[in-house]
Design a protein around this nucleic acid. Sequence first.
DNA 1: TATAGCGCTTTCCTAAAGGAAAGTGAAATA
DNA 2: TATTTCACTTTCCTTTAGGAAAGCGCTATA
Lengths: 112, 112
Amino acid sequence: MGYLSCLDTVKPVRDAIEVINGKWKLPIIISVMTGNERFTDIQESIPGITPKVLAKELKDLEQHQLIKRVVVDDYPVKILYKPEPYADTLTPIIEALKGWGLNHRKKIFEKE
Amino acid sequence: MGYLSCLDTVKPVRDAIEVINGKWKLPIIISVMTGNERFTDIQESIPGITPKVLAKELKDLEQHQLIKRVVVDDYPVKILYKPEPYADTLTPIIEALKGWGLNHRKKIFEKE
DNA sequence: TATAGCGCTTTCCTAAAGGAAAGTGAAATA
DNA sequence: TATTTCACTTTCCTTTAGGAAAGCGCTATA
């Protein structure tokens, strides 16, 4: 019989997950917010990420208006990735995940 | 040259993502924390989830000690899924995602 | 006896994620 | 002139996620 409705929470959580899903989006946002602007710098700041994946995820994040791709017309042309103001709204999520991750690792180590 | 290190944040965030990854884990935790205990109730409380996926994710969540599977020896046998205390530590993450998701939906609607 | 409910499992399938390695074109540097 | 850097792209491949549909063993109910 009747189940308890949890849609008020489940729906918005799913909306958020859809934007920041996958292994790489939050790490990339964190890197860009930390101040990494160049493709290569972002890549080197995130262990294990490949250029193919990075390029694809940067495009996704641009579409969601979390970062912007800036072409600087020096010679030679420079490409910079900068956080949009909207990226700041992700800070509570990032902090919550960071805190949980730190605690979780501590918990795992205590056990084994 | 040198990139800025963001590993202090990226690493724990990735640890957290590894546990709650995918489309369904948080919705299931939310449903169980809301009070849904039976397999069928959980399934009905989360639109779109199939029994195969639910069964698999419930096993994952049990392994991470976020929920427990309780066999009640009535006749007939009842199977209940209950949140472990550790699930409560996910509340800040869930709340952050919920808040962001609500705001994001508002933002999208304003635009179009 | 037939049907329904519960908690799944099984099979089959597609799509998306992700990784490895190499390459590319333009410009800078040695 | 040769090499390196930058910002990618391309190809190929494997893995994982996830969905659709059916079925299964058990019990309860009509």
